[in-house]
Design a protein around this nucleic acid. Structure first.
Length: 263
DNA sequence: TCAAATGTTTGATC
DNA sequence: GGATCAAACATTTG
């Protein structure tokens, strides 16, 4: 579900409720919430104070007075502040200020305590909002393969998912199957600029709500109303009227305008 | 019943 | 060895 704009919106809506607060107790209702033994997470989090909340790519970190609480929302994860406890409430965090529910239908998300930043979390590439063009282009040049799956690769850049990859490629008029390393500097500039602009705009609209996504208060985003290609297969391209095409690329549905985005 | 869904990890293969 | 690709994970919805 959540890509950078949605995760950023969740972070912004959750931060005022949890910053400086103390975790009193934790319930974990599914063995899939953590990768290892979940009792480590319960014990590790008890009595910890939340010093900072930050996002890198699609990852959320609560920095504690000792250790880290890590969240990844996967496809259907939600963090709900004092929200409804559904049957998908996989973990519940009781703070001195209220209750944080980690709700996740498909269970691709994670909520886990680490005493130190684990290696697998350090593999994330630079955040899509902060990477500069020079570094972006440099990294692009080093890759073979198609541009669309590369944008989804979180070790390349962090934060872009299926919606914003399709929307950014449309804005930059780049075919999703274009060879990453053969994209011209001018086109790469367009792509970099559009990725940043679209992510920022989507944050202003509090993200895209397709089926599941809501912020910590349970509110939907509205950016889905401005999608040009994502989920619009067969509908006219807003720029030229040609029907939007849907293909499968890197196992993901991929939407583009066959006229505006030439191979 | 089948396909698809905002994502990542794992294991094969190039 | 590194990069790339497909399968698997779990559940709902149309």
């Amino acid at each position: 579900m959540p890509e950078l704009p949605e995760v950023e919106t969740v972070v912004r809506s959750i931060t005022p409720h949890v910053l400086g607060r103390t975790i009193l107790d934790v319930e974990i209702n599914s063995h899939r919430v953590t990768r290892g033994d979940f009792s480590k997470t319960i014990v590790g989090l008890r009595k910890r104070q939340i010093k900072a909340v930050r996002r890198q790519g699609k990852q959320i970190f609560f920095e504690l007075d000792r250790g880290i609480l890590y969240f990844h929302l996967g496809m259907t994860g939600k963090l709900l502040w004092n929200g409804v406890r559904s049957k998908y409430a996989r973990a519940v965090f009781h703070l001195d200020s209220g209750t944080l529910i980690f709700d996740d239908v498909r269970q691709f998300g994670r909520a886990e305590f680490f005493s130190a930043m684990p290696e697998f979390l350090l593999r994330t590439g630079p955040d899509a909002l902060t990477i500069g063009f020079a570094e972006f282009f440099e990294r692009l040049r080093q890759r073979s393969g198609h541009i669309k799956p590369l944008l989804l690769n979180q070790t390349f850049i962090g934060g872009v998912g299926n919606i914003y990859a399709d929307e950014s490629l449309f804005a930059a008029r780049i075919h999703p199957r274009a060879s990453a390393r053969r994209i011209s500097k001018k086109r790469a500039e367009e792509l970099h600029r559009n990725v940043v602009e679209i992510l920022r705009l989507a944050i202003r609209h509090r993200g895209s709500s397709i089926s599941n996504y809501v912020d910590a208060e349970g509110a939907s985003g509205s950016y889905q109303q401005q999608h040009n290609v994502y989920g619009r297969a067969g509908k006219p391209c807003p720029r030229c009227g040609t029907p939007i095409r849907r293909i499968v690329l890197g196992q993901r549905g991929t939407h583009y305008c066959p006229r505006c985005q030439r191979p």
